[in-house]
Computed example of a mutant assay.
Amino acid sequence: MQLLNLLECADFIPTIASWHFDEWHALFPHKSVEDFAADLRESLQQDELPQTWVLLDAQGEAIGTASLLLSDMTTNQQLSPWLANIYIHPLQRGKGLGKQVVKQVMAEARQRELRKLYLFTEDQQAFYEKLGWELHHREFYENHWVAVMQYDFF
């Protein structure tokens, strides 16, 4: 398994945009598949945020993603940056890959000397708590209850 900057494998954008749309369109009802693709294209950079990484299997096929974004919700604009787009293809789930991806992107954030990270999740609060994340607050967002979480590096 290898985690690469999307800049190195941008050909996967249409596939990833489709995955993200299918997984999260209920939380972003105003966005189309093309909007998700446009968001991914915005993260085609080496040093600044936003950035997205793609998890590749041994054959070089995309099987997951993770991003660091400046903003991830229409609410909570004062909170930044965000861990987002943690996605593992359904056929690859249950193998610990999500944990691996989150830890690698958190290490990247630490290297960038970020002080905090935020994320929001509908149903994975316990997963993130096991990795040291804490509940910041809960809110009703786009007709769904979500947990907004934070991780303090220092």
Rank of each mutant, 00 (worst) to 15 (best):
Q92T: 01
G94V: 00
T52D: 05
R93I: 08
F120V: 02
K116P: 02
D57Y: 00
L68W: 01
M149L: 11
A62Q: 06
Q2K: 14
Q77W: 11
N143Y: 10
A38Q: 11
D11K: 06
A10F: 04
T75E: 09
D22I: 05
P50W: 13
F140W: 12
L27E: 10
E61I: 01
Y141L: 05
Q104C: 08
L3T: 10
I63D: 06
L114N: 05
L69D: 02
L91D: 14
G64N: 02
L79H: 06
Q150Y: 13
F153M: 11
T52L: 08
T52S: 15
L79N: 04
M149F: 03
R110D: 10
G64Y: 00
N143D: 13
Q125S: 11
Y87D: 00
W53V: 07
K130C: 05
L114D: 03
P14L: 05
L97F: 07
K99N: 11
S18P: 00
C9L: 00
T74H: 12
V33G: 05
Q111S: 15
E48P: 02
E42Q: 15
D57M: 01
D47K: 09
I86F: 01
L7C: 01
L40N: 09
F21Y: 15
Q78P: 04
E139T: 14
T74N: 09
S80I: 08
L117G: 04
M149S: 01
D39L: 14
Q92N: 03
K130H: 13
P90Q: 10
A126M: 04
Q78I: 05
S18A: 09
R110H: 10
L40T: 12
K103E: 10
E139D: 10
E34L: 13
H20V: 00
Q100H: 08
L114Y: 12
A17Y: 10
H144G: 03
Y141F: 12
M106W: 04
T121D: 03
T52P: 03
M73Q: 06
F36M: 05
Q59K: 08
I13H: 03
E23A: 11
F36N: 08
H136W: 11
E108S: 04
K116L: 13
E34G: 13
T52A: 07
L131Q: 14
P90I: 02
R41V: 13
E8M: 04
N5Q: 12
E142L: 01
L68M: 06
G94F: 00
K99L: 08
A107N: 14
F120T: 08
Q125G: 10
D152H: 09
L91T: 10
L68Y: 02
G94S: 04
D39N: 14
A109D: 02
L49I: 15
D57C: 01
K130Q: 15
K31Q: 15
F36L: 09
K130Y: 10
W24R: 01
T65F: 10
I16H: 02
G132T: 01
L135Y: 07
T121W: 07
N5D: 15
L119A: 05
T121V: 13
Q150N: 07
Q77H: 06
Y87K: 01
F12A: 03
A62C: 15
V105R: 07
A58I: 03
L27N: 13
A147N: 11
C9H: 13
L97E: 09
E108R: 12
S67L: 07
M73A: 14
E48Q: 09
